[in-house]
Structure formats: C-alpha cells, structure tokens
C-alpha cells in the first residue's frame, strides 16, 4: 500500500522549547483506547493544551494563533518513553509534517518515519537559533529539503544538514511502504526458517 510521497516544503513553525517531551505528554494513555489510526490530533498534548474542563490553556503554544505551520520545533530528547505509535499519529493528524529537535528517542523516530512524519535532528546550537528566531517572529519560515537533507532558516539563510537512513529516505520520497517490500521476500523468509530447523 503506497503512502503519501514526502516532498520538500516551506512552512512557518511552532516552537515548543521543552526538553524530554515524552509520549505521555504527546498523547496521554487514556486516549489510546481507539482501534483506528484517525483522530488522535484532537488530543495532541492534551493535558498541556486543555484544562480539566476542556478549556484551552492560553499559555500553551498550540492555543496561540500567532504560531501556525506544519513544522514543530521542540527541545532535546523528543518522544521519549512509550512505544505508542499513537504519538506519531497524533502529531501527523494535527497537521505537522516534520518535527525538529536536537535529539529523538529511538522508537518515536521509527514510528514517525513509518508514518510520513520527518524527524529532523539538528545540533543544539542550531536548535537554539531556530527556537529564538521563530519565537521572536512567528512569520519566519523554514525550508525542509529531504532530497538535499537540509533545513534552512529563511530569514537569515542559516542552514544545517541532517541525517536520515538512506533506505528510509528512499521510502519517504517515493511513498514506498516497507511492508510491501517485506511481503515480496516472504519466500526468502521461509527459506531462512527452513535453514534453521
């Protein structure tokens, strides 16, 4: 099953200058009772975003209409904790196409890549510059170029390259689904099983 092809894009960004944003903050466990992949964006950052009665917390960045865009820029060690893919679904469902941080938790990174959400890992210094620039001026745009593996802060032209596994890059750019590939080698897997018996 093909997934949406990832294309390079320009966007304003939403700053979240908090470190160790864990998956329980991204999507609390009590919202994991669904049996489909849809609709998790509604509860993205639920307890930071809404109060007890469901009233939006003004101080939280997603409730500040000045900050919009399809790029989330967050502090170091983003996505730590549980393996819930619902975290990646929630971020993607909300409308983000990329998350920028100086460090990602392993399982979250995989889950993001498997859902067409690009984790962009930059240096601490570049992250600090990005956060400062977008916080000060919400209209500042970032360019994310997956082919060239480069992220650019358009207001200053400052850019940094980022790493991505070449296989995953290929999958994202072409909209390949890796289960399709794995299905195509089922015979080889059966041979492997036989060789171990």
């Amino acid at each position: 099953m093909a997934i949406e092809k990832f294309v390079s894009f320009l966007s304003t960004a939403v700053p979240l200058p908090i470190e160790n944003v864990d998956t329980d903050q991204i999507i609390p466990a009590r919202f994991l009772k669904a049996t489909t992949r849809d609709g998790f964006g509604e509860n993205l950052f639920r307890d930071w975003r809404y109060g007890k009665e469901g009233e939006p917390k003004r101080e939280f960045v997603l409730n500040n209409s000045d900050y919009q865009g399809s790029i989330l820029v967050a502090g170091k060690n983003f996505g730590s904790g549980s393996s819930r893919e619902h975290a990646a679904w929630a971020i993607h469902d909300y409308g983000f196409k990329a998350v920028v941080s100086s460090f990602f938790a392993d399982i979250f990174k995989n889950n993001a890549l498997n859902n067409g959400l690009l984790p962009v890992q930059v240096t601490d210094e570049f992250l600090a510059d990005l956060l400062e620039a977008i916080t000060a001026d919400p209209s500042v745009q970032l360019k994310i170029d997956l082919v060239g593996q480069e992220i650019t802060l358009l207001s200053t032209g400052a850019k940094e390259s980022f790493e991505i596994n070449p296989y995953k890059k290929e999958c994202l750019l072409n909209g390949y689904d890796d289960i399709d590939y794995m299905m195509s080698i089922r015979d080889k897997i059966a041979q492997f099983e036989a060789s171990r018996a």
């Binding site: 393996s83 893919e85 990646a88 399982i107 995989n110 498997n114 890796d178 289960i179 794995m182 299905m183």
Partner: peptide
C-alpha cells in the same frame, strides 16, 4: 519494543 506499523510487519512477515 516496537510501534504498531512494526507489529503489522511482524504479523505479515
């Protein structure tokens, strides 16, 4: 630990 897409992959292959 793995994510749900990977659970699907293990079920499939």
């Amino acid at each position: 630990g793995i994510g749900t897409s990977e659970v699907e992959m293990v079920l499939a292959t």
